[in-house]
Design a protein around this nucleic acid. Sequence first.
DNA 1: GCCAACGTTGGC
DNA 2: GCCAACGTTGGC
Length: 152
Amino acid sequence: MSYWLLKSEPSELSISDLAGRPARTESWDGVRNYQARNILRDGMRVSDLAFFYHSSCAEPGIVGIVQVASAAYPDPTQFQADHKHYDPDSKPADPRWWLVDVQLVRKLKRTISLTELKGHPELAAMPLLRKGNRLSVMPVSAAEWDCILRLE
DNA sequence: GCCAACGTTGGC
DNA sequence: GCCAACGTTGGC
């Protein structure tokens, strides 16, 4: 089993939005970065766990845990001409963008903020904490995962 | 293949 | 709103 971190702007999808859904699931569409795409498509497996991270908001940080609920499949929004994530160069026979479904496992008891995460040297190698890094889907090591959960 | 221009991300 | 950092595009 592997661990991951997924960023979401709460104005697009917050942890509370996810918690309010009947099946507490979301199709993680809209990823339009090749590195993130490769991680989604080639790295993630059903039942892997991921931190849910709020970005571009008042208190950026980790707010919950989700579980990968499907294998990767083509992101349907890339073929929808009226969709903001439409990609006219992607063809159904050879899809460029992929996604997985995720399901909420639980909210954390509190937000573990970006500021707090930066204060722990054992987390310094996380892409999340590296200056200028904008990756929205990234791996988390087992040691980092355990370390962050102990902060809760 | 180089690189300037541009668009996006995301913290502050 | 600002701006640093990064990815993508497209001319040459």
